[in-house]
Each structure stands twice: as structure tokens, then as C-alpha cells.
Design a binder for these strands. Structure first.
Lengths: 104, 104
DNA sequence: GAATCACATAAGTATGCGCTTATGTTTTGG
DNA sequence: CCAAAACATAAGCGCATACTTATGTGATTC
């Protein structure tokens, strides 16, 4: 079950930090490690978990592997959240403003 | 960190099932167990985790304890998701329709 | 083409997590 | 009151998980 993978992947703070970094722009694994105090294998393993959760996708570029946010995982969380939208009415207005902004 | 508690709480499929049940309507712990094949202590422990993640809140009613969805946890997830809204444009249209419906 | 770089995988270990059994606490009904 | 019901908490156990060290793999550079 993919929902399982997604929430499990995000339950680790290190993995959320990695994801947040990637959300600011695609990056290879070495660049991701900068300023994070994490070993190379640990990073590789975290990326594998994020990848199998469809939160991140990879792209070989020579001997580097570029990583970037995969919209699929986020869409699944959004979909999950929508099921319970009746419970967060307070945020509706904020979302409306947001959508209006994206309209231009 | 509360975000940690939330994602960790949702990473367990049993806990997501409990949450989903509660989303359909408030219920006490015994009622929640019906049709779930889960022991009483296990249920109590799961509810404690959901509670500390602000996904669920309790209300004593005699010797029963009624549980219901707490909007706070959901709002926090929505807030977290919004940070990455640039990455799920495909879902924007669906959300728009949704918000329009809620307008009446 | 051999050394090196960027990264993945393997194996082992310590800690966390979800379950069980057992017991405690609060409330109600007779 | 006191027995039972509804839940919470405690302690222990097996398994997942996040890390480490070591090694493997594919691409590049000299």
C-alpha cells in the first residue's frame, strides 16, 4: 500500500529535511549532504525510501544522480487529506486566496 | 516537534483505519473495536498516539470516553502540504470544484 | 585503462515500535 | 458498598528501522 510508504517515509525528520531541501530545487545526493551531517550510505538509503514512496524521483546525469520532488506522492497526501476536508473549514479561506493567486 | 508526532501516528495502517472510522462520526473506544480484531490495550495505545498528535480528542462521558477527530492535526498537515503546493498543479482544478461546492 | 568519483547495496547493531499479558483507575448499577 | 464495566498504564517481547562499516557498480578523467 502506497499510503503506508508515504506516511512512513515522512515520519522521519531527517527524510522530511531532505525532502524540504529538494522542494527548493533539484539536487544530486552529494549536494544534499552539505550541511546535514549525514553519512553517504545513510543519505542513499533515505533517498531510496523517499523514492519508493513516490515523494522523490531520480535522473542519472553522468556519474551524478539528480533528485527532485515527485508530485505523485504529494498528490496522494492531498487526496488523503481531502477525505477529511469537512474537519478543517478554517483553512478553506486561505486555500481560496491561494488558488486565486495562481489564477493570475 | 508536533509534525513528527503526526506523520508517525499516520504511518501505522491500523491507526489510519481508526482515524477514518472516527472521521465518519464520534465514537467510544469499545465501539471503535467492533469489527477490527484488535485488543483493548492496543486500541487504547493507538488512541493515545493519535491524541498526542492532535489528530483525535477525547471527552469523558460517564464511564465511556468518546473520541472524535481533532481538526488541529489535519490543519497542520494541510499547512505542511501548502509549502509544496507548487508541485501538485494537477490537483488544483479538483480543489477549485470542491471549494465551489462548499460555497453553495 | 587504471585510478577516482558518485552513488548503491550488504551486513551487522542498537534503538524504537506495536503487540501481548497483567494490573490499575474511574464510573456505574444493583 | 461492591462487583462489574470501560478504559488506561506497566512490563516484556519480537520485529522493524536507522545507523554504521565495508564493499560493489557505473561513469569520468588523466
Amino acid at each position: 500500500m502506497i499510503e503506508n510508504d508515504i506516511f512512513r517515509a515522512l515520519s522521519d525528520p531527517t527524510r522530511r529535511a531532505i525532502f524540504e531541501k529538494l522542494a527548493a530545487g533539484g539536487m544530486n545526493a552529494s549536494a544534499l549532504r552539505e550541511g546535514m551531517e549525514i553519512s553517504q550510505p545513510a543519505m542513499s538509503q533515505h533517498l531510496a525510501v523517499l523514492r519508493s514512496a513516490k515523494l522523490v524521483r531520480e535522473e542519472r546525469q553522468g556519474r551524478f544522480v539528480n533528485y527532485e520532488v515527485d508530485p505523485d506522492g504529494l498528490a496522494l497526501i492531498a487526496q488523503w487529506l481531502e477525505k477529511y476536508r469537512a474537519y478543517w473549514p478554517a483553512r478553506i479561506e486561505a486555500l481560496k486566496v491561494l488558488l486565486k493567486d495562481m489564477d493570475q
